[in-house]
């Protein structure tokens, strides 16, 4: 595991996590003397093999659990999508995403438009919800199905007081088989923080 607490020139705090050197991260946390940053190992669902990636950064928990393409397809076909339309989303690397303000020193605010993905040496934004909704409208997806889609997604922006959280779907917009880093950003009292999940794999 790589663990690099940082304070950049703009005052951003970040932590960097992968899961090869958990012991090293634990040692760094210990050296920092009770830093609120810790790491948890990834785990896999024994039935599906879907992996969960987790990090704790600055009192905020972030986790991604991949929803396999068949699962995503089944969910949206059951909500009124045609199979061809459901396929478009199912093949975009979809994760059940949880962000939670556990013990941050105040209410946090985030916008997904400020999160980014590192993939193939490129930094890219997450596909915006409005783009998905526009695509479904253009493809003639029924209103009720688009409504289900909108509410099943991880919120595009949100505020969490300590103890508050959400769980929702988040597509990375990458082809199955991709590997990427996700950088989540949030603010508390005008201070920006980062939580980072490195080398996340999207199983096809």
């Amino acid at each position: 595991m790589r663990f690099t607490p940082q304070t950049g020139p703009n005052g951003t705090h970040s932590c960097r996590l992968s899961f090869r050197c958990a012991a090293a991260a634990a040692a760094v946390v210990a050296v920092l003397g009770g830093s609120p940053i810790s790491a948890e190992p990834v785990r896999s669902d024994p039935e599906t093999g879907a992996a969960t990636y987790e990090t704790q950064a600055h009192g905020v928990g972030l986790s991604l659990t991949q929803l396999l393409p068949d699962q995503v397809r089944a969910f949206y076909v059951a909500r009124g999508f045609d199979l061809a339309d459901a396929d478009v989303f199912a093949d975009a690397c979809v994760y059940m995403t949880v962000l939670r303000n556990d013990t941050a020193p105040g209410e946090l605010d985030f916008r997904l438009s400020e999160w980014s993905i590192h993939h193939d040496e490129e930094v890219r934004p997450l596909p915006p919800l409005d783009d998905w909704l526009a695509q479904w409208a253009a493809r003639g997806v029924p209103d009720s199905a688009r409504l289900a889609f909108r509410w099943a997604q991880f919120p595009s922006e949100q505020s969490y007081a300590p103890g508050e959280w959400n769980q929702g779907m988040l597509a990375m917009g990458l082809p199955p088989g991709s590997r990427f880093d996700l950088i989540a950003r949030w603010t508390i009292a005008d201070q920006t923080y980062e939580g980072r999940l490195d080398d996340v794999r999207c199983t096809d």
Partner: peptide, 29 residues
């Protein structure tokens, strides 16, 4: 049948099993 399918997809699978479910909050804001 469709409903159970959805629950299975987003519930148990989406969170990696019952033991890994995110804990419910115990306080209001």
């Amino acid at each position: 049948p469709a409903l159970f399918l959805c629950f299975g997809t987003v519930g148990a699978v989406g969170t990696g099993g019952a033991a890994d479910l995110p804990p419910l909050s115990h306080r209001l804001t």
